[in-house]
Design a protein around this nucleic acid. Structure first.
Lengths: 184, 184
DNA sequence: TGTTGCATGTAAGGGGTTACATGATTGA
DNA sequence: TCAATCATGTAACCCCTTACATGCAACA
């Protein structure tokens, strides 16, 4: 039931439609979580049935109604319980690291190219994070723990820290693989 | 088809039984990947059916035969193809970061306790990584790209780098949450 | 007139976790 | 005698991705 908590977090900030949630996941929230609308719409309906959300329906642009969801008191309670509960990490499943693990079965030059491309990707991501960070900090609410921006900055700082660590690792990996390729 | 590649990587090093693979995932490989035996046994059977593995069966300790799998030439080919193919990252889904994102809906002191516990967990993990690193480096094969230890060290260095970055972030997050709690 | 954005839904299938199930050997 | 280790399998269920499906409004 992890998506349920993601949806509670977002809708607790302010009311959202399923479409709004989908957009936020694809854009600003993409370094934390993502989900497809095909997963979001049924879950929102289930959460309403369970009393965590209420729904206000109105005329929509298409053939169906547009539904705006709001968190109920029961929903806020569930959210607080979850936020204080012990954290149980999932096993990391990282294909990039798996490939490094398998280096002995690879062509070093080919594998080095994969990590070189990844350094470029991470550099781009870091640039985007820097832009978002400037926007969030400009809001002036990042020291107020009752404001969403406080938490947004925290998660952004995580994204930046981990991306930087991976960037250094990727560069070192390219260097080691190139050295290995010369020896060969 | 991601588990398939993990199994190819491990069995390409040397023949494994399903039990061997399960053990390695739970122990030394846990920072890269993990899977339960209920997923591994059927996948090994499917890979044999697809010609990526061959299987040698003998008397086992229990009611069923013990099966040792070896990678075929087709399996090694598939592995090389995958290692050189473009990397497409999955969306990160990190509950710890999601909680930070939701800080505005949390009790700051309670949330700080969650991150304090996580710093302790990471410190323990880093100590275990250091032990494994010493063992791998002692083997003396970490500069030879044809040896499994070369790749093992690379992935271990990733685990260490990311764990250290997260540790710094966790400590900073505790500090920010405690400061917020005082203001409140 | 064709594409993008808004807005909501269903269906099929892949991947993963938890639980159920069996049974021999070794060591405390 | 009780627990752990070795060893393999199935079944139910949950979560997620990909693809199918509809239709209006605005803009180029």
């Amino acid at each position: 039931m992890r998506l349920r908590h993601v949806l509670l977090v977002l809708i607790a900030e302010r009311p959202h439609t399923g479409y709004d949630v989908t957009q936020r996941m694809q854009k600003t929230m993409s370094m934390i979580w993502s989900a497809h609308h095909s997963q979001i719409y049924p879950e929102l309906a289930a959460m309403e049935a369970d009393g965590l959300l209420t729904c206000e329906a109105g005329a929509g642009p298409g053939p169906r109604e547009k539904k705006t969801y709001t968190v109920t008191e029961a929903g806020r309670h569930e959210l607080r319980i979850w936020l204080g509960s012990p954290y149980q990490p999932r096993a990391p499943k990282d294909e990039l690291v798996l490939r490094a693990f398998a280096a002995a079965s690879a062509d070093p030059a080919e594998l080095a190219a994969v990590y070189e491309e990844e350094t470029r990707q991470i550099e781009g991501r870091l640039a985007r994070y820097a832009t978002i960070r400037a926007e969030v900090e400009e809001s002036g609410h990042t020291d107020d723990p009752t404001r969403p921006e406080f938490g947004h900055l925290l998660s952004l700082l995580h994204g930046i820290a981990v991306a930087e660590a991976r960037l250094v690792w990727c560069r070192d990996t390219v260097r080691r693989l190139r050295a290995a390729d010369l020896v060969r």
